[in-house]
């Protein structure tokens, strides 16, 4: 298993390949050469992908970085016309964002963070519950599954409009709680409205991924646990959760990324420039729509760094395994190999 993996690892990351050399001293020179050859082949094969990624990811990223160093075009007071060129301002856009517009920036920053933490936490809880329900065999399961997935299929903009009706001053939400709350005005209630709509829409996403994770857990594990008399909560805690963790972490990571970039839901549901729900993406959009691409890029770059940091922390701390088996180091590989039998052994010996 170990031998078949290394070439694959090299193929995708040729640069990393050399560090795994000492692991296999037994390997003959011939084998190494063959691997190098297939490495070149693999590099050739992935090069179209890399090229496309360079064009659609790397180039725009660098362009945005560059653009963020330019200011807005100025108005010539004599002619009344906007100048043709954008002045180079260095890091002033960033200084302005953190200084002059600092209050707005940090407000948006905390809103973004707050939304991410709260929605992802709620979505995880509800999503896992949904997955457990969808996974159970019962009559009408197909209907329940379809029902749970519907919100995820609704485009965010449409669900924003939908919830705006619900949260209207004389909408269903107010009728249900029997008390008039003006949800779309400034205040904490606006945040609540966004969170409810967001969780409604995206909990099924986590549910779906977790369901996929649940379906690969072998039945024998549960059978063994039942024979040993493990209670349902115990089974969930010691079998389901550890085994579904990789899928769950990937789902949560995706949701975090998405939530950090949240734009359309607060924009449509509550409205533009409402401080209670303004997110970093909305600030970037506001600048861009007023033809100030420099500051807009600066906001985007800051958001990019933030998302990047969160992603990095996520991957490092929680070990969310995004690219599967590729280039895994020995310790991790060992862990993975043991992972499936481990709970069974534990339960059996218990």
């Amino acid at each position: 298993m170990a031998d078949t993996k290394t070439p694959a690892g090299r193929a995708v990351h040729p640069a990393v390949g050399s560090s795994s050399g000492p692991l296999n001293r037994r390997r003959t020179r011939k084998q190494v050469r063959a691997t190098a050859g297939s490495g070149r082949m693999a590099a050739l094969l992935v090069s179209p992908t890399l090229l496309v990624l360079t064009i659609v990811v790397l180039y725009p990223t660098l362009m945005a970085l560059n653009e963020s160093l330019y200011g807005a075009k100025g108005l010539d007071p004599k002619t009344g016309f906007i100048s043709d060129t954008e002045p180079f301002v260095g890091l002033r856009n960033y200084a302005d964002i953190l200084g002059q517009a600092g209050e707005r920036f940090w407000n948006a920053f905390w809103n973004t963070t707050f939304f991410t933490v709260v929605t992802v936490a709620l979505e995880t809880l509800i999503g896992v519950a949904m997955a457990l329900i969808m996974h159970k065999a019962f009559r009408g399961r197909g209907l329940v599954r379809a029902g749970i997935l519907v919100p995820w299929a609704v485009p965010t903009a449409i669900s924003g409009l939908l919830w705006r009706w619900i949260f209207n001053s004389d909408g269903i939400a107010n009728a249900l709680i029997g008390h008039q709350v003006l949800w779309t005005t400034e205040g904490f209630h606006a945040k609540v409205a966004v969170i409810v709509a967001e969780v409604w829409k995206t909990a099924p996403f986590i549910g779906l991924l977790v369901l996929a994770g649940l379906q690969v857990i072998p039945k024998e594990v549960y059978e063994a646990a039942r024979i040993d008399g493990a209670s349902a909560p115990r089974q969930f805690w010691h079998i389901t959760l550890p085994l579904v963790k990789p899928a769950l972490l990937v789902a949560m990571l995706f949701r975090c990324m998405d939530a950090l970039r949240m734009f359309d839901l607060p924009y449509i549901l509550i409205g533009a420039q409402k401080h209670s729900v303004e997110t970093l993406s909305m600030l970037a959009q506001h600048e861009a729509s007023n033809v100030r691409f420099g500051p807009a890029s600066a906001y985007s770059v800051l958001l990019f760094l933030y998302v990047f940091l969160i992603a990095l922390t996520f991957v490092r701390l929680l070990g969310a395994d995004l690219i599967g088996d590729v280039g895994a180091d020995t310790r991790k590989r060992k862990g993975r190999r043991l992972r499936i039998p481990a709970p069974r052994r534990k339960e059996v010996t218990a």
Partner: peptide, 20 residues
């Protein structure tokens, strides 16, 4: 991992133009 994910977020505003 994180670079790929985060880069997607930046596409948002890459359509600015500079230097006419």
């Amino acid at each position: 991992c994180s670079a790929v994910l985060a880069a997607a977020g930046l596409l948002l505003s890459a359509c600015g133009s500079s230097g006419d």
